[in-house]
Computed example of a mutant assay.
Amino acid sequence: MIEIELKFQVPAAARDAVAKAMASGRSERTRLQAVYYDTPDRRLAAASAAVRLRLEGSRWVQTAKAGDPHGMQRHEHNAPVDGAADGPPPALDLARHQGTPVGGLIARALAGAAPAPLFRTDVHRTHREVRAGKGTLELALDIGEITGGDRRWPLHELEIELVDGDPLAVLDAASCWVARHGLWLDVRSKAERGDRVSRGVDTGEPVVASSWPANPSLRQVARLGLAHLLPNASEVASGTFTPGHLLQVNDALRRIVGTLPSFPEADPSWTPTLTGTLAATSDAATAVDALRQPAFTQVLLALQAVALVPEGQPVTISCTMDPSTFS
């Protein structure tokens, strides 16, 4: 299956309001305790893949994921596993994913090597299903931590995942939550952050731009620009980053800003918003706040929509959820 989701960090000032919003309606609360596996030389991480065993309430599930670690869509396969909720994790068995696209990707990445436990997550998840636009979504507020050795990484984030329907529904819902609570987009997965915890490092390597065609379409600008911008912007917005991350953010914004005016179908509000963000990110002292601004995040969501739909298809995103579901 293809997992389609976005993840957002919840600012400290908004945490009580977001928790209250998530606790309303038919929400459930589940404890998720996971063990993530990889080889000592990080073959799965290098292939943008992850394998975990997770106790979800009282049942064990083995999950494999692979694909673009910084995009909305990834391959995913889940397999129920027999095991006691009050006992140790069951044995990992990669054959559970045999015959699936993600199973093949995992097998090629490992090339016969055996993965071992590297880090763990312990999360209390408040979750519920909602309708937005033309889709059904799961909203999940995760509060907990990633641990590896004597290091830990606190978690406080909201995930919006498509259950069924139009993928644009994820962006519609995200637009609501960003406008209401000032959430900011973070494309770093738990697996990516856990790998850092296990290695004792705080940041990843800056992501550099791939080559652009001579005359890109608007969809290509959105896809290539976001692939360059989002992983670096996530690092800078987190407050822990290197000069290289900030340099790549500026480079990505310049490319996008320099190209958008040539497309009459591009929303005219995007360029001034991105131009203002570019000016603010020229200084490390103002960059973090600039990349957390709701107006900037809304432009990112709009560009995600452009990247998602077929070339030339008109696309708009708007908050189509009942206000009672996010306030």
Rank of each mutant, 00 (worst) to 15 (best):
H70C: 09
D164Q: 15
V299M: 09
G104C: 06
V178N: 00
A140Y: 04
A237R: 06
L230G: 04
L185Y: 14
M22Y: 00
A95I: 01
K7N: 05
P243E: 10
P206M: 11
Q248K: 12
S58E: 15
K7T: 07
G149H: 00
G165P: 09
N232P: 11
D195V: 14
R29Y: 02
P231G: 00
L32N: 06
R74T: 12
R108F: 03
P231I: 02
L185D: 07
K190H: 03
R125V: 14
D202A: 14
G103D: 10
R31M: 12
E159Y: 13
T320C: 03
A279F: 15
A237Q: 05
A34E: 00
A287Q: 10
E3H: 07
A95S: 15
L110G: 03
S175C: 11
Q298W: 11
P40W: 11
I317P: 03
A46M: 12
A191S: 13
I106Q: 04
I256M: 00
V221M: 14
E28D: 13
V299N: 04
P88K: 08
T277H: 10
A191C: 10
S262D: 08
C176S: 08
D93P: 00
A50S: 15
L168H: 01
D82A: 15
D289L: 14
M1L: 07
L183M: 12
R120T: 14
R180A: 13
Q304G: 07
Q73I: 12
L226H: 00
V81R: 00
E205M: 13
P88D: 04
G67F: 04
R59N: 12
G103L: 11
L53P: 00
D38G: 01
P40I: 12
R74V: 14
E3G: 02
P314N: 01
A140H: 05
A79V: 07
D41P: 11
F8I: 12
L278C: 09
T316D: 13
S318D: 15
W177S: 05
T39G: 00
Q33H: 06
T136G: 01
G25F: 06
E311V: 14
G239W: 13
T63Q: 12
F263Q: 04
G204F: 02
P154A: 01
D195H: 14
Q98D: 15
D164N: 15
A66D: 03
G135H: 01
A285I: 06
A111S: 13
R180L: 07
M22D: 08
A12W: 05
A280K: 13
P115R: 10
I143E: 15
L300T: 12
E76N: 10
G312C: 02
A214T: 11
E129P: 01
R193V: 14
L141D: 04
P264T: 09
A252P: 04
P80V: 08
T273W: 10
S210R: 12
M22R: 12
P310I: 12
R108V: 09
R188H: 14
S27C: 06
M72V: 14
R223D: 07
F326W: 08
R29C: 07
V102N: 00
S262P: 02
A21V: 11
N232S: 00
V187K: 09
S24W: 10
R254G: 10
D164E: 15
D142E: 01
P213A: 08
M321K: 10
W153I: 15
W60Y: 02
E157N: 13
P213E: 10
P115C: 06
A21T: 09
V102I: 03
I106D: 01
C176K: 08
G135I: 05
V130G: 04
